[in-house]
Computed example of a mutant assay.
Amino acid sequence: MKVTLIIIIITLIVIICIQYVKNSKTSKDIKYIRETLQHIVEKGSTERIKLFTSDDEMKQLLTAINKLLDYNNNNITKYNKAKISMKKMLSNISHDLKTPLTVILGYVEMLKLKSEEKVMADKIYEKAEEVLDLINKFFDLARIESGDKKIQISKVNICEICRTTILNFYDTLQVENMEVLIDIPEKDIFVLGNEEAIIRILNNLIFNAIRYGGSGKYLGLVISDEETFAHIKVIDKGKGIEEKYKEEVFERIFTLEDSRSKSYQGSGLGLTITKSLVEALGGTIHVNSLPNVKTTFSFTLNKLNY
């Protein structure tokens, strides 16, 4: 009787141990699958999940997961190829259109010399310049996003660049009778950047503040000296941007007149290019807006602390 009881107890213990080992193995396998999937998502890798197991259900699950991963990788590859192809097409179209437009502008310049044709020539010239400007923006955006436009990063004085850039808008700000606040530290602040790119970023943001926020008769340019980065803000007190549009203003073809004023027309590419340039410099850009009170476009650039 005692021997039988002992055998039963031992058998139960063995069964419990086997079940524990099995459950423990399953738990480890699930943890491995979860961590591998997380790594694949975060790194955007094309690897598959490899796991040796005798569990039929686990094998079926792994097969299904790997099929989904293969399907997703194929879609990503097709998307990237289509994206590169589209960017190259835009770049080629932009280049092909610029040449005849430049020639047209040259002929219009000649027409403008004759007084009786000057008015008409001025209008043609103005519209041709608008088209050329749009093409240049398309061309620049395509080159930046495709990696064709290499931006050289070096040590630049952000304070000096901001002072010079805002001075270029002096006449416009005077004509518009705008109150101007310039808060730039006297000491030099050096960042990792590119002078040409930063000037273009500032020009776009200041131009938009005047064009779309001019009703507030206020423009601010502020630099904050943070520990590891410089924080640059362009501020206006115009009509502002509605909350529902704040996430869209940096998207291509979205125009600020959608959210501010219907009386102004834009290409919808200025802020997209601005964001691309900021990110190419290793920075970030954001917008905060309280309509008719304060709208702030701010971007950061990494500081050089030596």
Rank of each mutant, 00 (worst) to 15 (best):
K262C: 03
F229T: 11
H95R: 14
G214S: 12
K294S: 08
L5S: 11
E226V: 04
K155F: 00
N177G: 09
N23K: 10
S259E: 00
E117G: 08
S94F: 02
D140H: 14
T46N: 06
I8T: 11
L202Q: 05
N302L: 01
L113I: 14
F297C: 02
S91D: 08
E186T: 05
V103Q: 13
L167Y: 11
T99K: 15
Y107R: 11
K244F: 06
G283N: 00
L221C: 07
H95F: 10
K83I: 03
T46G: 00
I124T: 08
N73R: 03
E243I: 02
D183P: 01
E130W: 08
V41G: 06
V234P: 01
R260E: 11
A121K: 09
A121E: 04
V3Q: 05
E117Y: 14
T4M: 09
I49G: 11
S298Y: 04
M1Y: 13
S91G: 00
M86P: 00
I223Y: 04
K127D: 10
F297P: 00
G106F: 07
R252C: 09
E248G: 07
E117C: 13
A142K: 01
K22I: 07
I40G: 04
I235N: 03
I6Q: 12
G270H: 04
I184C: 00
I273P: 08
D96A: 09
A121M: 03
I189E: 02
G193E: 09
N72A: 13
D122L: 15
K244Q: 14
I232G: 13
C159E: 06
S27P: 02
